[in-house]
Structures are given as C-alpha cells and as structure tokens.
Simulated assay, not measured.
Amino acid sequence: MKDSTLVSKSNALIEAEYTLSLVAQRVIVLAIIEARNQGDLIKAGGLLRIKATEYQQCFDCALPMAYESLRSACDNLYEADFSYWDKDEVGRDKFNKSRFVQKASYVKGGGYVEIMFGSEVIPLITRLSEKYTEYELSQIKDLNSVYALRLFELLMQWQSTGKTAPVLISDLRSKLGVEESHYKQMCDFKKRVLDSAVKEINDNTNIKVKYEQIKEGRKIIAFTFKFTVKKTPKKPVINARDPDTIDIFTGVTDKGVKAFKPMTIGQITFFASLIAKDPSFNSSENGLIAKVGESDKDYQMRVQRSLNDYENQVKWLDYLLKHNFKTE
C-alpha cells in the first residue's frame, strides 16, 4: 500500500447494521486507505482501484486467492446495503438506509477491482472532524473472521477508556453482523461468535480483551468489554549491567524500567495530549517530530497511536516522567 495505512471511519459507520463477507470488509478497508491517499478524488466520487497484489501483500494470501477474493467482494459489495443513525438539521434522530457502493467493477485478467463509494458513504469516511475511529491496517490484517473484525472496530471507539458502555444483546448482534436466524441460543452465540472473536483478537492484534455479562435475574441482557494494549516483547539483553545504574536518557534505573508496566488506554490518551504539546518532544529526534503542515489534532493522534507500542513507551519515558507519569 502507498503512503498511510491508517483506516478512519465515522462511529456511525462503525456501528451501522450490515452483513458483509470478510473479503468485502477487507476491500472496504483498502478502499478507505486508497481514498485518503488520493485526497480530493474521493470527494468527487471517483473510482478507487484495489490491486490483487495489494490484497495479497496486506492479508498474506496466495495471488490466485487474492484474485478470487476481489471478484467475490465485488459481487457482495454491490448487493449489500447498510443502515445507521444520525441527526437531522434540528437534532432529531434519523434512521438511514443506503448502499456501500454505486459501482463495482472486476476486470477479468486485469488483477484489480474498481469501486465507487455511494454518496452516503463518502462523508462517513472523509468528513471526520468529530466522532470517528482510527486504527492501523496492520492491527487487523491477521483477523480471519467477520465477527472478530467487527468487534475489533467497535472496541477501537473506546480507545481512550479501554472499556465499553454496556451493549444490549440485540445491538451487539446487529453490530457484529449476526443474521437474525443464526445462533439464537445464548450458548451458541457465545461459543460461535463472541468467544471465538475475542480469542482471535487476543491472538492476532495488539490488544487483550475480555467481556463481562450483565444479567437481569438469570437472563443475560448485555455485555461490557474491557481491553488493554499488549506489552511488546523485548529482545534479550546479552551484556547485562548493574540494575541500579541510572540511564542517562531516562534518569531511571534498569530496575525501575523492568518494573515499568505497560500504560493503560486511558494513560496513553492522557499523556499523548501532554507530550504532543511539549516543544522538546515534537522537535527532537529522540521524540516524534511533527510533520510540516500537520494539524495539532492529527499530530496528537499520531503520538497516541505510537504510544500503543510498549517499546515507544520505554523510549519516551523521560518525556512521560517530565509530565508526572509514574512507573509504579
């Protein structure tokens, strides 16, 4: 993929009700990235070309399978609709039904597909000044089920807290794309949908998630989800030094660093907002240099995404300590 591999969606689209295959959802993700990289073209409702080689590279599959995936995604996307809630001009709740694409083309022997997003979709992936969700493509590339991908996106709305609000069973089923006739029994829903999605996320992404049941009497009526960013495994140190040695960069002993637990989601959000405004951080090669023309909000979000990596938390520990972060 070219340039940024950041996926951005409005929360309305994240929470929309629809049923799509895994490959169709992957193609939408790639198209959103392509739209961002093309800039103004998407605003005019332009065609977005997704190559089989890009699909192969991103999702680690054989090229013939990538070709077939794109072809089947075209059929699925053109037939699929979705529904979502937003507000009218005076703030009243408005229920909308629309289609993902107004055109989907597969070129036989061309090794690519072209899609044109529907007019309702374009503002949901481009006008993201308010409620929206972002994540990197690398975070979902190894997810191989529809339910795991949908659940991961739902969780990413709550990155600042690491905990969701209670989600009613009916809402969760619709947001995960579980068809009405499937897994009606709670034991089947938990086993076939929820538990398998949670396990896949825990095994293949940068977060660790668990859920809690909310009951009314003996009946389960809702779920809440909690998640934390995983600690990145550190490479073994061959030449160890005195654990009480004070590091010249962080001012913390090795013993202190070893006791340094990964930051919580809330800490990452809070301290990202602080160090992003620190001139010694945003202009130093030891920190994260701001890009020319990058807005303060975009830069802060880039710092926040980088802090999800435990190695960066350790690397920037001196800046965190400067803003009263506690390692214990």
Rank of each mutant, 00 (worst) to 15 (best):
E136G: 11
K51L: 13
L172Y: 02
G162M: 03
I201L: 10
N11T: 15
E34C: 04
M301I: 12
F117Q: 01
L128T: 08
Q213K: 11
A12T: 12
A24E: 06
Q300L: 13
I169S: 01
F227C: 01
N11I: 15
K51T: 06
G266C: 11
K9G: 01
V23W: 05
P243D: 05
L47S: 07
G91H: 13
K215P: 05
G39C: 05
Y84Q: 09
L143W: 14
F270Q: 11
K141S: 15
K87H: 14
K234Y: 08
L77R: 01
T228F: 05
V237Q: 05
Q213H: 06
L151V: 08
S306H: 09
L13M: 13
F189N: 02
S181D: 07
L307C: 03
Y299K: 07
T205M: 11
S21I: 07
G177S: 05
F82Q: 01
R241G: 00
S273G: 15
E54A: 10
F271P: 00
Q300Y: 11
K103D: 13
I125W: 01
E34Y: 05
D40Q: 04
Y67S: 00
R127C: 11
Y112Q: 08
N324I: 07
P236N: 03
Y319E: 07
T224Y: 02
W158Q: 10
V167Q: 05
V257S: 03
M65H: 07
L70V: 12
D60A: 09
F95P: 01
F100C: 03
F152G: 02
R36E: 14
